[in-house]
Structures are given as structure tokens and as C-alpha cells.
Amino acid sequence: MISISGLDYHFDSRQVLKSLHLNVPEGIIHSLIGTTGAGKTLTLKLIAGLMPIQTGKVATTSNDISFVFQQNSFLPWLTMQENLKCSLGEFSKEFNQALAQLNLSLFLESHPKELSGGTLQKFALVRAFAKKSKIILLDEPFSHLDIVQKEDLYKTLILLWQGYRPTLLIVSHDIDEVLLLSHSISFLSLKSKHISNSFDIRPYEEIPQVTLAKSRQDNGNYQLFEKLLGLLKEDLT
């Protein structure tokens, strides 16, 4: 569970977050959507302890938090194997199986520069879940991938999540993506600097079915899509 209350944040004199409140129940996939510059990544970094909290409170059920970065998730001068061993120690049998299942074993001797964005993010997902953290934060993990890679990674994400159902908080600006993956969504408004709307998309126990084409036909999704798009547009005017 993640619980944030009264979170304020200033960059020098500019206020980015203003009394932000957010509650994410245990074991669900929650998405934080908002326009660029709304403070989504900042919120994640504050939860993860990567930046110091100025005012407000962030409480999590566990201090063990994994993070999937938007880019540069690995040390470029090490091979993938060295990178993973640095972060996780020696590979367990289970981890080796996961790598094989996701067709990642082939790339263990490669350096990050030699791999595609999709493969790197797949490695980043596997690493985050291998740590068995109760909370996993994902900072626009799929934003720079093409649609085929995206679908592949959505499936990977759901597959890994099903393993032990940690709490996921995904930051994104892609409406399709959040509708597809999440149980619930919060809208972080650039104007009011806190969460202005929240939506429940599906029952918390349901496993999201990630097929991009199918989600386009879903009428309920379409209405939510319009609603979220309206919010994003309104925020930018």
C-alpha cells in the first residue's frame, strides 16, 4: 500500500506539487496520468526516496521498493549479466527460468548500448520483479517504444505481476496504456498541482487482459478515454 498525504514540493520558488493526496491499495495496478511537467515522475521519486520530501507524508507498507526507470536503467559499461548480478547477486534458478521464458538469456553478454529499447525495458521489468519488492514504481517505462514492443511488454508486465501481485504504480501520459493495464487511475493536474480526479476501471481482483486491438472496441473504455483526454486538454489550456 502507498499512502501520500499533504505532499508539497518546490523547485526553488516554483511550486510543483500542492497538498497531493494519494492512496493505492495493496496488490493492485494503479496509474498516475498527467501532462508533461505535472510532477508525475517527481511523485514517484519522492515515494522511492530518491528525492527528499519537503512537506507532507509518504507512507508505504514496505521500505523495499523497486523502480523501473524511463531510460538508462543499466550501467552502460557493464554487460547485462554484470548489471543484473550487481543489483540482485547470484542468479537463482527461478530467475534463470524467467530470463529464458522471456527470451532474455541470449542477451546476457551484451552491453545495454547493443540492445533495443524494448529488450532493455524487459530486463528492467524482470529485475524489478526479481527483487520481490512489495511495491514497484514504473516511470513511463514504455513511452519510447513502438506499438508492437509495447504490447509485448504489457504482457510481460502482467505475467510478472501475476507471480506475486505486488502493488504497481505506473506513471504514464498514454491514455490507452493506463486503461489497458490499471485497476484504477489518478489524474495529476498541472493546474491544481494535485490529484484532481480518480477512476476505478476494473475490480481489483481481475487480471488485466492486454490486447491492444480488443481494448479499442471496448465501449466503456472509449468513454473513459474521452473523459481523460478532455482532462488532459483542459489542463493544458
Partner: peptide
């Protein structure tokens, strides 16, 4: 990259 070290 220091963030990676802090998280992992």
C-alpha cells in the same frame, strides 16, 4: 545512474 544504485 546513481538512482539505480540507490534502488538496487
Amino acid at each position: 545512474l546513481m538512482d539505480i544504485i540507490k534502488i538496487y
